[in-house]
C-alpha cells in the first residue's frame, strides 16, 4: 500500500499522503474490524443495560466459542458450517451457565461484589483455557468460501470482509427484532427500565436474564469465530483485548443501547485502523487508543453517542 498513485483525491494525514485507493482499503479493513467489535459489544451492552454489570468474562466467552468451533472441526470432524453453528449454540449455553452459576447468586449483593465475581469468572475461563487447550496458539481453519480475494483497481477485498459485514448485519437485525418486536424483548427492555416493577408484573426475571446472556454470548461467539478467521489463529488469552475494546465500543455508543453498541464498534474499528494507517509510527499505541477514547467519552459525554442513561 506504500505506492502513491496519481490520485485525484489525496488524503493528508500528518504530512503523509494516502491516496484514495489506500484510504478505501483502510476503510474496508476498519469497517470489518468494527463489525466484530460491534458484535461483541452487543453482549456487553445488553447485560449492562439489564443488570448494570460489566461482564468482564464476555471476551473470554468469545474465546471459548472459538475453541468450540476449532474442536468441532478437528475432533468431531464436523463440516465448518455445522461446527460454527454448534459452537455458537454451545457458547450461548455457556453464557447461561455462567449467569446461573456465578452471577445469579450475587445478584442482590453490592454491585462491586458482582464485578469481582465477573473478574473471577474471566480469569477462570482464561486459565481453564490455558490448562485445557494449552497456551500455544492454534491455527484456525478458514473455509474456502471466506478465502477468496477480489481486486478492484488497487483495492483488495477479502471475501471474509464481505461476509463479516453481511453476517453482522444479519445478526444485528435479528437481535434488534428480538429486542423491539417480541414479548421477550419487551420484557428485557422493561427490566432495563425498572427491574423491581417488572418482577411485580409477573415477569420471570431469571428466565429473561438467562435469555439475554444466551443472545449476547451467541453474538460474541459469532464475532469471535470471524475474528479467529481474520487472524487465522486462536489462543486462550485472545479474548482479553477485543473484550475490553468492545466494552469501550459499548460505552462509546451509549451503554444499554444495541444500535449504539454497533455504531460504537464500527467507529472504534475505523478510528483504530485509520490511526495506524495515518501514523504507522504510533502503531504500538494502538491498544491504548481505546482507553484514551473511553476516558474522553466519560469526561465529555458520559452517556455515549446514543445513550440516555447517565452512568451512576
Amino acid at each position: 500500500m506504500g505506492a502513491i498513485s496519481e490520485s485525484p483525491l489525496p488524503f493528508i494525514f500528518q504530512d503523509r499522503i494516502i491516496d484514495t485507493a489506500a484510504f478505501t482499503q483502510q476503510l474496508i479493513n476498519g469497517v470489518s474490524l468494527g463489525c466484530l467489535y460491534g458484535l461483541i459489544a452487543i453482549g456487553y451492552t445488553m447485560v449492562y443495560g439489564i443488570l448494570r454489570l460489566i461482564n468482564f468474562a464476555h471476551g473470554d466467552v468469545m474465546m471459548v466459542g472459538c475453541y468450540f468451533a476449532f474442536y468441532g472441526m478437528l475432533l468431531f470432524t464436523l463440516p465448518w458450517w455445522a461446527s460454527f453453528l454448534v459452537a455458537i449454540l454451545l457458547t450461548a449455553l455457556l453464557g447461561v451457565l455462567i449467569d446461573r452459576g456465578a452471577y445469579r447468586p450475587v445478584r442482590n449483593a453490592p454491585r462491586i461484589s458482582a464485578l469481582i465475581t465477573a473478574i473471577g469468572v474471566s480469569f477462570l475461563l482464561e486459565n481453564l483455557g490455558l490448562v485445557l487447550f494449552g497456551g500455544r496458539p492454534k491455527a484456525f481453519y478458514r473455509p474456502e468460501i471466506f478465502s477468496g480475494i477480489h481486486t478492484f483497481g488497487e483495492v483488495r477485498v477479502l471475501d471474509l470482509h464481505v461476509w463479516t459485514a453481511l453476517l453482522t448485519l444479519l445478526i444485528f437485525t435479528f437481535i434488534y427484532q428480538i429486542i423491539y418486536k417480541t414479548r421477550i424483548g419487551r420484557a428485557m427492555r422493561c427490566i432495563a427500565h425498572d427491574m423491581e416493577t417488572t418482577r411485580l408484573m409477573g415477569v420471570d426475571l431469571n428466565r429473561i436474564i438467562a435469555f439475554t446472556f444466551a443472545i449476547g454470548s451467541a453474538a460474541a461467539a459469532a464475532g469471535g469465530i470471524m475474528w479467529a478467521m481474520r487472524y487465522p489463529q486462536i489462543n486462550p488469552l485472545m479474548g482479553i483485548l477485543p473484550g475490553l475494546k468492545a466494552f469501550v465500543a459499548a460505552v462509546l455508543g451509549g451503554i444499554g443501547n444495541v444500535s449504539g453498541a454497533m455504531l460504537g464498534g464500527l467507529l472504534l474499528g475505523l478510528i483504530e485502523i485509520l490511526l495506524v494507517a495515518a501514523r504507522p509510527d504510533l502503531a504500538g499505541y494502538r491498544d491504548a487508543l481505546a482507553f484514551g477514547i473511553l476516558i474522553l467519552i466519560l469526561l465529555f459525554r458520559p452517556t455515549g453517542l446514543m445513550g440516555e442513561r447517565l452512568p451512576e
Binding site: 460489566i54 454491585r111 462491586i112 475490553l244 499505541y285 482507553f291 484514551g292 476516558i295 458520559p302 452512568p311
Partner: peptide
C-alpha cells in the same frame, strides 16, 4: 466517575502504562 466505570477507567490506565 464512580463504581464500575471507575473500575474500567483505572483498568484502562493500567493497560495504557503497559503499552
Amino acid at each position: 466517575v464512580r463504581g464500575d466505570y471507575l473500575a474500567i477507567v483505572t483498568l484502562g490506565f493500567g493497560e495504557v502504562v503497559r503499552v
